[in-house]
């Protein structure tokens, strides 16, 4: 039963594998027929609009939008939970909607202060 369910998804994996199998040769052929000249080390420097690059490539970044990532982790999961209810809505009795309204209220109620707090630049 479980294997059957998982077997349905095998064609997705097959398509993924076909994508790799069809596109990797393009890179191999390109590598074979294209010129490879190692004449100048400057050629292999990272692109910085013609300047000689300064400093590390992977610089430390000021993550000004970090609270949005935190919000995403929480609310993405909550949004997916709603699908379990949405897909079964037509079979459920109408009284089963009340707890979902509570869930939506909690979701909305949590999102509003989270958005308000993430907008305050000083605390991040």
């Amino acid at each position: 039963m479980v294997g059957e369910l998982a077997g349905n998804y095998s064609t997705v994996v097959l398509m993924f594998a076909f994508g790799i199998a069809a596109m990797a040769p393009a890179l191999v052929i390109s590598r074979m027929i294209s010129p490879r000249k190692r004449s100048n080390p400057v050629k292999f420097l990272p692109m910085e609009c013609g300047q000689v690059p300064s400093g590390e490539g992977r610089t430390h970044f000021m993550m000004q939008y970090y609270p949005y990532i935190l919000m995403f982790v929480v609310f993405d999961v909550m949004a997916i939970f709603l699908y379990a209810w949405g897909a079964a809505l037509l079979e459920l009795p109408k009284s089963a909607t009340l707890p979902m309204m509570g869930f939506l209220a909690i979701m909305f109620g949590a999102m509003a202060p989270a958005l308000y707090l993430s907008g305050k630049r000083r605390i991040w």
């Binding site: 398509m15 790799i20 596109m23």
Partner: peptide, 13 residues
């Protein structure tokens, strides 16, 4: 890039 194409293909599937 290869993974990018393959993931797009899995979406098409």
């Amino acid at each position: 890039p290869v993974l990018f194409v393959a993931t797009a293909a899995a979406f098409v599937a």
